[in-house]
Design a protein around this nucleic acid. Structure first.
Lengths: 407, 407
DNA sequence: GATTTTTTTCTCGACAGTCGAGAAATTTAG
DNA sequence: CTAAATTTCTCGACTGTCGAGAAAAAAATC
């Protein structure tokens, strides 16, 4: 359904555009904003004075004039305009980061997650405590926290911050909205971890390639398997999705997965699956909860020395991934694939299987092998993705709510 | 990347909105348009007088006043504002339809496609002849044809009207744009057939459910297997895609498909595949080009009487479809599935396999079985989908180009 | 038959937004 | 000290939407 447009909407969109340009390029002068956005100088004046009145941006003090002519007045976001808390949930720890409106990290700490299966209720209280702790440490009032951005592996509701399924809590759902609502009035968003990796890579790609960028998939290899897809959307920037790739069906009635289903991709390509198949344990045994990476390193070392069953385990994992990726490509379009996560250290062993698995499908035979690249530093990408998404959400919200009310 | 907004853009969008409402509801009065669009009466006046000046809409003659008060002046599209030619390519025929701007069918005929493998070049010339023929029969000048909307089974380039792969011509590509360009200045669009089915069903669904509608998949069963997905998009109405579902990998190193790859879904669920498996022909034999439906009816009859291998063939087909659908659902979101096409007459035989195939995956176990419905009249849906898409493209183009130039 | 009521359409002034041009500000070059 | 260069700011023109009320026209009422 189409919706009506109005002039206020125009102003809103252009205000968001100005903020996003400021975010991407740092402090900018009047004329530079005009160049980047394509808006006229007069419009920039109107928008920036409005944003300045609303205490969202500020003029920086006169800096040493570099060229001749009237010196530039740089505009930048006011750091204290609002704050963001990033919560990254991983299998063994929860990391809390406090970030200001300009995207600068103020404080950060990690809390080791106890491995007892005490379940979701107890986890939620620990998150609430963690949030209060980071707030207290930095003496910021709670109202100044505009957004809490959470990420986890697993399956996430696309509209509400509800964790539907995760490798940690299984199908014990966690609704962060209702868990934090009495205490916090900040908006809460929840994203799949690999989706954020994809978002960060998409951002980098768009900066590098500009309009040539079309789409990209990020594949995260580890204890579990994640996939994120970024596509350049029509008007509203990029479109991101995190399919349930790890638990897509690889082979009917196949190996038993942690999720209880048989034949998931993860049941062949997850760390525990590689371990299981290397030790020739029957595929229907209940998989180990946690696999030390050292254990897998040993198998990899054996595989590299020519040990058959070890090499075979990695090959099987690669095949599952390749088949799965080929299915994903059948349903979307040709796009480059970036592989991240701790599993990239075994890429030499996985590669042949992945390529063979890809090659078994019609799309790949027709369109050729997609570009595959290995990208390290998954942790940094996850954090970048958080900032990316969260700060643009904040920009949007500020313009929608803050500007006219500050009038 | 965000793009700048301007006031003209607002007018354009609202003009398109008015046209789309007129399209959806037929001739409307001033006030009704205002109600449907949410725009004020004054704005409607401005837009409609502009469109009237540009000869896109017209005031209908005074009709018998129904209520009291000043009688309504109905506004409707001018039929002669422009025309649309719909070309539906199926395996045995090509159907040409001439439609006016209001969506009314003016002329239609079919040409039987010769089965000789003379290839794409000859086919293109026959399409050019067909287009000229329908134009001639109805005494419309060529400039008045604003759009040629073509559909075929197979894989289509998403941005240009290029048929990349089709069950008829294989990977012999056909670029309709360049084939028709010297002769026709009309815009040419090409869509996958099942995508249009999905579009038509999505439209119906949106009318029925309104804002509750989220997404829907259409699965077409026949000689080949097609899938179309509709999702409600942010601003610009619906988002439609036609993945290469029929040739998604079902099983590595599986049965040989018409496309030359092994293990495609179609190699298990296409008509020829069902035939092959019912007669216990080895799965690596080159499949028959055309299978008379009567032949399949016979197998179905045997299966319904309890014949084992015949029933098994349908069950295998169902499993392939169910596995494939489960993979699709893993990569998208839970959505209802509408099954169309000639294969629906065997749904009773396919059903169990489809449901079992779906049930083997994590998503379905978690979220439950998706709603599956059988929808007849695929041909009508294809045509409706054509109108749907083509006329909204025309509306867009007219507003973008026609209005200010007619000033 | 004249007047009132009701409904629809049209018009006008107010307001919001963008743009181009040119004025104002301010520094460097000569 | 003056001219050139460069950036910012302001003003008037233009386009767009909206609300209110005038104008139009038929039905209802007296």
């Amino acid at each position: 359904m189409l919706t009506k447009s109005s002039t206020e909407l125009v102003r809103q969109r252009n205000s968001v555009l100005v903020l996003s340009v400021l975010r991407r390029h740092g402090a900018l002068a009047h004329t530079e904003i005009s160049d980047f956005t394509g808006l006229s100088s007069a419009t920039i004046s109107a928008i920036t004075t409005e944003l300045e009145k609303a205490q969202i941006i500020e003029k920086s003090e006169q800096q040493a004039a570099s060229g001749r002519g009237r010196p530039r007045v740089l505009l930048r976001q006011r750091r204290d305009c609002g704050y963001l808390i990033v919560v990254i949930i991983s299998s063994d720890a929860v990391q809390y980061s406090l970030v200001d409106y300009a995207g600068k990290l103020i404080d950060r700490f990690s809390e080791v997650r106890s491995h007892d299966p005490s379940g979701a209720a107890r986890f939620v209280t620990s998150v609430r405590a963690g949030l209060l702790r980071i707030l207290e440490r930095s003496r910021i009032t709670q109202e100044k926290v505009l957004l809490i951005s959470i990420s986890s592996k697993g399956l996430v509701n696309s509209t509400e911050p509800v964790l539907l399924w995760s490798p940690i809590f299984g199908s014990e759902q966690i609704d962060f909205e209702s868990a934090l609502r009495p205490e916090w009035q900040a908006k809460v968003i929840l994203d799949n971890e690999t989706l954020l990796v994809a978002a960060a890579l998409g951002e980098r790609e768009e900066i590098a390639k500009g309009a040539d960028f079309r789409s990209l998939a990020a594949l995260s290899l580890g204890h579990s398997i994640g996939l994120g897809i970024v596509r350049r959307g029509g008007q509203t920037g990029q479109e991101i999705s995190a399919p349930n790739f790890g638990h897509m069906l690889h082979m009917a009635n196949g190996g038993l997965c942690r999720c209880g289903t048989r034949g998931c991709i993860e049941a062949y390509a997850g760390f525990y699956a590689i371990l299981r198949s290397a030790f020739e344990v029957p595929l229907d045994t209940i998989p180990a909860k946690f696999v030390p990476v050292a254990e897998l390193d040993k198998i990899a070392a054996k595989a590299r020395q020519g040990h058959r069953t070890s090499a075979f385990a990695f090959r099987q994992a690669g095949l599952a991934l390749g088949n799965g990726l080929s299915r994903m490509l059948s349903l979307t379009e040709r796009m480059p694939i970036a592989i991240t996560g701790p599993g990239t250290r075994y890429y030499d062993l996985l590669r042949q299987g992945i390529e063979e698995g890809l090659g078994q499908s019609h799309v790949v035979r027709m369109e050729g092998m997609p570009e595959i690249r290995v990208v390290a530093d998954e942790q940094i990408l996850v954090f970048d993705g958080h900032l990316n998404r969260a700060l643009s959400v904040i920009d949007q919200d500020i313009v929608l709510s803050g500007v006219q009310s500050a009038e």
